[in-house]
Design a protein around this nucleic acid. Sequence first.
DNA 1: CGAGGTTTTGAGCGAATTCAATTCCGGTGG
DNA 2: CCACCGGAATTGAATTCGCTCAAAACCTCG
Lengths: 247, 247
Amino acid sequence: MSVVESRQLSDLTEWIIMQPCDCENCAIRSVALFGEIHQQTVQRVHDQARQLEEPEGTILYREGHAANAAFTLREGIVKLVRNQPGGRSQIVRLLVGGDFFGAEGLFGDTHHHTAITLTPVTLCRLPNTLLEQLRTDDPAFSDALLGRWRRALDEVESLALELGNRKAEERLASFLLHWQRKHGPQAQWLPLPLSRGELGELLGLRVETVSRVMARWKRERLFEERNRLIRLLDAEGLQHVVDSDPG
Amino acid sequence: MSVVESRQLSDLTEWIIMQPCDCENCAIRSVALFGEIHQQTVQRVHDQARQLEEPEGTILYREGHAANAAFTLREGIVKLVRNQPGGRSQIVRLLVGGDFFGAEGLFGDTHHHTAITLTPVTLCRLPNTLLEQLRTDDPAFSDALLGRWRRALDEVESLALELGNRKAEERLASFLLHWQRKHGPQAQWLPLPLSRGELGELLGLRVETVSRVMARWKRERLFEERNRLIRLLDAEGLQHVVDSDPG
DNA sequence: CGAGGTTTTGAGCGAATTCAATTCCGGTGG
DNA sequence: CCACCGGAATTGAATTCGCTCAAAACCTCG
């Protein structure tokens, strides 16, 4: 577990401090869910959606619990975790600004993951009632959803590819490069708010394995790390690790 | 590779023998894509969709190629494969009767997988033009698509869970039980049209590993196998293998 | 400073792969 | 009908990779 104690998103007091979502001037509107949609729809969202901020380590919802709302992530990073009966768990997706998640309620389902913030986040909460309205009233909304879902499927398939076909070092190198791309290739210092254990949960490895490899790579100056930021010093070299599979 | 030589779905001659899809009385309509949809929509599909039959080993489409049509699988089994630069590949999904796949064209994308038949199949081909019409005209169609996509996401996440957290025997046992469930718990003999190598491609294991485990299980009479059919003799025992993880 | 969590490092073990060889099996042609 | 062929399945031996167990070093925060 993290050093941060788990908070629950359930206090009534939370609701009082929540602000209406500033949809009109939302800086990330172009990448967020409602980029492609009617002004009228945006207005409706504005009325019903609520923006909230949460610290690191907050459980936004739990696997198996009723799905009363979906979220749009504006700022920060969230992990979606799926648990196994046996006590282990798998991070199935890392969410960054602009991502939409938690809409299982649209199908009358409970949540399929546990969503936990890895950094302080700001997000918009979209109640089920709103989602239902949008789906029935604005066909562009369904299309947007469809696109999101397809992209999510794509990402998880890539993850399965990694898990099934690559060995430890390749997975780690591949992840670092992927993370770099996700934050723009020009970015120097990337946030990496994942513990070694969490990297393991994502890549199907044990803490010790992750630690060993990353410690060595730091010694070999393939990358450096400060606080929870990393900088790739030799992307070339990392790419070489990925490609070095004798398959 | 399989003993079946790869056929391509491209001959013009194929088109001549294709029949209009019998959507009205389609036996699997309730489970197929258009179960929940207007009569008018069904009619339109009837006009434009074409039913076709293909033998085992047919490549329906290739990863990276233009996505001109999607398919509904009526009978048979299809694998969706994703390739790695390094030459390896991962089966990301096994499709059975009623499944819908290959709709990447809806987003202007090329196909994200290679689709290969594992048995003789009958399927309906839905050209992009039809898909576009349906999406814009019938909101229920988008909803149905959404549901399909969500279920697919769910399955792939489960696969990632297997690949990331379980060891060889657990994955195999888990797969056999899952396959049993998929064909109805009461079914005695299940088709298993996957070679050992293909099971490995699905579960992230080498041929030899799969063969060793399955050969042992046959000796221990956990299941039996004839032609390409299997019968689970001790589902209890297999479940125990799955649960035996010390995690 | 001390406590609790995280990271690192070491040693030994077990699991799965690799390489290599043999057996099995269905189909083909003599 | 049977020998033969090619691909798939099986089995063995050696190796490598990642895991487990254990302990030490490191933070960070109270």
